[in-house]
Amino acid sequence: MDGLVTLEYVSRLQVVSGKGGTGKTTVAAALALALATEGKRALLVEVEGRQGIAQLFETEALPYGERKIAVAPGGGEVYALAIDPELALLDYLQMFYKMGGAGRALKKLGAIDFATTIAPGLRDVLLTGKACEAVRRKEKNGRFTYDYVVMDAPPTGRITRFLNVNDEVAGLAKIGPIHNQAQAVMRVIKSPETAVHLVTLLEEMPVQETVDGIAELRGARLPVGRVIVNMVRPTVLDAADLEFMETASRPAIARALSGTGLGGARRGGGADRLVMPLLEQAGEYAERHALEHEQRTVLQELGLPLHELPLLAEGMDLAGLYELATELRQQGIS
C-alpha cells in the first residue's frame, strides 16, 4: 500500500461502533486480527455481555479473564476479554481499596446490582475503565502488555454517551476515587491514543445513523477514526450493463441462455421462462445499486477514511474473519 499509510499514527485503543445489524463485532474481531499481524498482541474487548466474540471465534463462552483466542498471521496474538461490570467492580474495589469484604457486603445489599445497572453511567465507567486499564498496562520490562486494544462497543446511538460517561461522572462525583478514575479514563479516550470507528452498511438508515453519530462524537470532542462499510456486495452488473439491459431483446437473452443448455429459447421453453425472473432480479439489483451509490456519496462527503469490506458469500465463519482481516490490512488500516 501507499508508503504514507505506515507513517500514520495507529491509535492503541480502537473503538468499533455501528448500528445494530451492521456486523460491528465481526469488524472489531477482524480489526484485532489485522492489528495483531506481524508479531503484535491485541486485546479484543466485549462490553455488552452478548458473548458475540466467543460465537465468532467458535469457542465456548468467555470467562471474565483475558484469554488467547486466535493467532494472527505472522505470529501475532489476539486475546479476548468479555467484561462483566459486576466482576469488574468487585475487582476494582479489591485492587484499589482492598475492599473485597465490603464488596461482598455491598453485593448482599444489592448495591453492586445498583451500581452496575441502575446508577447512572457507573456501569459504563467500569467498562471503559477496564479497557483503559488494559491500554495502559505494562509488563515488567516496561513494554505495553497489549500493543492494541480493540473494543466491540455499544451501537452508534449510544456510543458518544458511553464514551463520554466519565466526563459526566467526573462532574457528578466531584471528588473521590471515582472522580479521579473517571478523569484518567477521559484522558485516554480523548487523546490520539483512541480512535472511534463506525461500521455501516450501504443502506439509508445505517448511513444516516453514522452521519449523526459522527456529528455527536465530534461535538463531544471524541476522536473519530474511520468509517467501515461492511457487507459490500460485489458489482455483478455495472452501470453500462444496467443501461443496456433496458433495451436488450428478451428473445436474444433467451437464446443466449438456451445456448448454455438451459432449455428451449422458444416461448414457454425452459430458457424463455427464466428471462423474466432473471430480469426482475436484475431490476431489484439496479434499484439497490442506485441506492448504494447514493449512500456511498453521502459517506464520502464525511471526509473520513472510508473502507469497504466484502459480503462473504458463504456467510461469516472463522476463515471469513481472517479474510476480512487481510482485507483491512491491505487497505492500510493497521
Binding site: L237, M245, A248, L278, L279
Partner: peptide, 16 residues
C-alpha cells in the same frame, strides 16, 4: 453484449 449481460444475469441469480 447480450452474452455478457446474460452471464451477468446468471451470476446475479447464482448470488441470489
Amino acid at each position: 453484449t447480450i452474452e455478457q449481460l446474460t452471464a451477468g444475469l446468471l451470476r446475479l441469480h447464482a448470488e441470489r
